[in-house]
Design a protein around this nucleic acid. Sequence first.
DNA 1: GTGAAAGCGCTAACAA
DNA 2: TTGTTAGCGCTTTCAC
Lengths: 373, 373
Amino acid sequence: MTRRAVTIVDVARYAEVSVSTVHYALNGKRRITPATQERVQRAVRELNYHPNAGAQAMASHRASVIALMVPLRGDMHLPVIMEIATAVALTARRHGQDVLLLTGDEGPEGLRRVTASGRADALILMDVELEDRRIPVLHEVGLPAVLIGLPTDSTGLTCLDLDFRVAGAACVDHLASLGHRDVALIGGSRQVYDRHTGFAERTLTGFLTRSEQLGIRATHHSCEGSVESVAGVLSRILEERPCVTGFVVQNEVAASALPGLLGRLARIVPAEASVVAICPDQVALHSFPQLTSVSLPAQELGRRAVELVMAQLRGEVTAGEHLLAPSLTARESSAQRVSTRAIQSSTTGPASATSSPRTARPSPSVASGASSV
Amino acid sequence: MTRRAVTIVDVARYAEVSVSTVHYALNGKRRITPATQERVQRAVRELNYHPNAGAQAMASHRASVIALMVPLRGDMHLPVIMEIATAVALTARRHGQDVLLLTGDEGPEGLRRVTASGRADALILMDVELEDRRIPVLHEVGLPAVLIGLPTDSTGLTCLDLDFRVAGAACVDHLASLGHRDVALIGGSRQVYDRHTGFAERTLTGFLTRSEQLGIRATHHSCEGSVESVAGVLSRILEERPCVTGFVVQNEVAASALPGLLGRLARIVPAEASVVAICPDQVALHSFPQLTSVSLPAQELGRRAVELVMAQLRGEVTAGEHLLAPSLTARESSAQRVSTRAIQSSTTGPASATSSPRTARPSPSVASGASSV
DNA sequence: GTGAAAGCGCTAACAA
DNA sequence: TTGTTAGCGCTTTCAC
């Protein structure tokens, strides 16, 4: 039943060569006569030989495994995490590496475990915090590693993230190009700005800087993750600045609720107000109207992370901040600003789609129920 | 910089005992004097010893790794997949196992690779199809394995899934308890019923059987994943059976679109028509109104899968179909049926909610009943 | 209760 | 161009 596994010795015997010949034939680190090469290949094929990973790891000091630590219940969106994880696995395989799945709750000790035991020879960490407790371990072990997210002190580390500064600027650019002259940024909760931050502040910087450059009036507010808070923040903004017609949101709840809330305040999106979100595509596409947005390039993050790790395994130095250029996709929530309060009968918006069920949707103001945090 | 790793020999020397003593002290397969025990523990701690995984695997013929194969771009929802994966990783660690992440595109060959190379000594497969090409490999390698989903021929295999038959019945029960006497099931696309199926048919069976038992009129239609098709199916249903007031949906697009579509046809949900969905919580919660639903118990699937694998590693036989009891959560999309066409002025519907969508919750009498077989 | 030593299967240095 | 062999670090049998 459980027959002994095929070893390199079996292959050698079968091909009538020595083990080293088999070995070198399989990884071309030595010139082999085509004839011998062929015999070995045949033997491998016919015996269905797969080198034993443990032995290989032990002898070569390389496990050919990348450990990927995913957040357990972070602020990140599950689909985004999954997309990154999948991209990591795919790309890793393409480079002959396997992926070990670790959860964030294993913490620094988990990293120590998998590295000290030689289970993994490279690390990819998601959901990196500003003062991440795992970072000291990274320096300790000195193995190839990539952080997805930017910590406060990234000295000597390879970090990868979306360029949120540019993303913030891109949102302003987009709104400006549509004629909006007064814009507001609705960000994440205060917590996000404190703890997990980095990206939130970077977005803000880009947003403010570009606004100033373009001579556009800009405000910003942090905002908790409930529809109520979004409503509160919104009314505060409009109270202080009734002329705001462009909104940038970096807050999933706000993203999906804002169009509805604006509608209730007689500012139909996109006819009278434009909304640009920085959020996962999923959120942008599931909102009504679909949101113009800068998306998180999940797949590319995963792919790049592996490539950076591989470069390090090759001995290259990749330390530094690798920022992916954001790309903004225009959808239904942004449009040319009209100076006069729009004509009531304006049916030019995407909302006019014929058979679309959207028309039937009730007062969208109440769209999404209270969700947590 | 890259100092040599601490080995069991180092520990032995430090503790002034033999390697075997260290070994046995660490896994209690031999009686050790408390004094010696303590010395070893100290050495381990002070040297920060972590057994080398490769060597361990090679010598013991056990990698202590479970391979988890996730669908690449299946019909399954990304968040659900991620939740299962996370639960698998968590539970596995709790059992001293690590998790290797494989993507579906590695196919049968991928399974052969990780098993033949001794990288993994157990398998968990997600997104199992009726005639899954990976199944033959499972029989070949004979390693512990759990399938999440039910294939046509599950002989000798350990399968795990939600009990969709009971889920279908539970939906009928719920609608019946609310007074609905004429119900319709809107299922997935025809493809789903063909290819990836299993679960779709099982739901249907439960739905029809229970309807008959309760003397309720029932129809069912498959439905593609576009809003247009949902609209089409809906109008067809109402044409043939104007009296249908209860809907069961197992189709994410239909789930989120149905309430709106019904609203357009002057059947406000839940006042005049009730909708019960079989879908991930995410979908149910993001719809408006929030859907009464039977959810996919992602976490439990992941946890149970690992437990079943561990049982097999222990030598226990777990072959068979392990079906999780579904649980139905009543939300805002289902309510007591009113026989007279609702009063037009009925402002009790959820659409009237002011600041809190919850107020709209219908007849709270609806107990969240989880029924079992 | 403790120790010695023979593998496990592969890699890589050394020979031929 | 090909073959031989000494480890890699741990497990486990056998001896004390």
